[in-house]
């Protein structure tokens, strides 16, 4: 039992942190169009060129480093396709393009990252399939803070030579990491706000009604982060379902708190809060949401009726 990063993972996370500090700053300042999201194309390219998306397959980094990276990247106010690239792609075979869009169990409707994606991955109990994209994706307007799209045109699917259950587990871990990171990023933003913003002659963050709710949120996020890292280390289906269920089940209350404590400012497009909370709203419902993750867990730990 050792809950600290090994040396390689520590270096990896330090270098990543430095890149994100720059990029997050940049991303924060270039919110000029006040859009619902900003795709961090520059960050994406730099991470890709520096090989960050391949960490999961490197022995001394592994899925733990990949999951930690997904969490950290998701904290930034800009959005990039990281989760599937960092935790699925290394295990899907050779020559898999990225960015990736992922659909599970033929979920209907618009898909996250489809406008940017160069391939779509479809996960079901029976198979994991891939279709390369070349202009078939159509962007869709959306409430969510992700580039969303639908398929407009024929796709040619290939079945990948992988274990669908293992890929499903990886995807649960990736989603848990991304949702945890998104909530953590939003929490950081709200903490900065309530430390500064004064009402009744004192900072909002000095009121206990505010403090306790944010403190609870922090406990859930941190517990979720550790559950996710454990799942990444052990690649165990029960661990993965538990991590995802835990963070999805708390995302609703956390998202509510984040908006409440920023008042009207949090409803503007000028402030990027929505870039975290409206990613969280999308992720909260992925793979059927917390109840499905919990049912998966119950099946694995306790079996049937």
């Amino acid at each position: 039992m050792r809950l600290a990063f090994n040396e390689d993972q520590a270096t990896f996370s330090t270098v990543l942190g430095q890149m994100l500090d720059n990029e997050a700053e940049a991303g924060f300042q270039t919110v000029e169009d006040w859009g619902r999201f900003a795709y961090g194309a520059a960050l994406d390219t730099r991470l890709d060129e520096a090989g960050f998306f391949d960490a999961a397959r490197e022995e001394d980094l592994g899925p733990v480093a990949a999951a930690a990276m997904i969490h950290e990247v998701a904290k930034a106010p800009v959005v990039i396709e990281c989760a599937a690239s960092a935790l699925l792609r290394p295990f899907l075979g050779e020559d898999i393009p990225r960015p990736l869009a992922v659909v599970v169990d033929d979920a209907p409707g618009a898909v996250r990252f489809l406008p940017q994606a160069r391939a779509i991955i479809a996960i079901s109990d029976r198979a994991v399939r891939l279709a390369r994209l070349d202009g078939q994706a159509k962007p869709e307007e959306s409430l969510f803070a992700y580039p969303m799209g639908t398929i407009d045109g024929g796709l040619s699917w290939e079945t990948l030579d992988v274990d669908p259950q293992a890929i499903r587990t990886l995807w649960q871990i990736a989603l848990a990491a991304e949702l945890g990171g998104v909530l953590d990023g939003g929490l950081g933003s709200v903490l900065r706000y309530v430390r500064e913003r004064e009402q009744f002659g004192r900072p909002l963050g000095s009121f206990q009604g505010v403090q306790h709710r944010l403190a609870e949120d922090a406990v859930w996020i941190e517990g979720g982060r550790l559950l996710t890292l454990r799942a990444a280390a052990r690649l165990d289906p029960a661990d993965a379902a538990l991590a995802l269920g835990h963070i999805q089940s708390h995302a609703t209350r956390i998202g509510y708190d984040l908006h409440q404590f920023m008042g009207a400012m949090g409803l503007t497009l000028e402030h990027p809060l929505h870039r975290w909370t409206y990613r969280a709203r999308a992720l909260r419902a992925e793979m059927g949401g917390a109840p499905h993750a919990f049912l998966d867990y119950a099946d694995t730990r306790w079996g049937g009726r």
Partner: peptide, 21 residues
């Protein structure tokens, strides 16, 4: 009922991981 059991398990394991840290 199954969901509630898993939710309780998640709380136990989140606590466990935070304590282990």
């Amino acid at each position: 009922i199954r969901t509630r059991a898993a939710e309780a398990a998640a709380a136990c394991d989140a606590a466990r991981m935070l304590v282990y840290r």
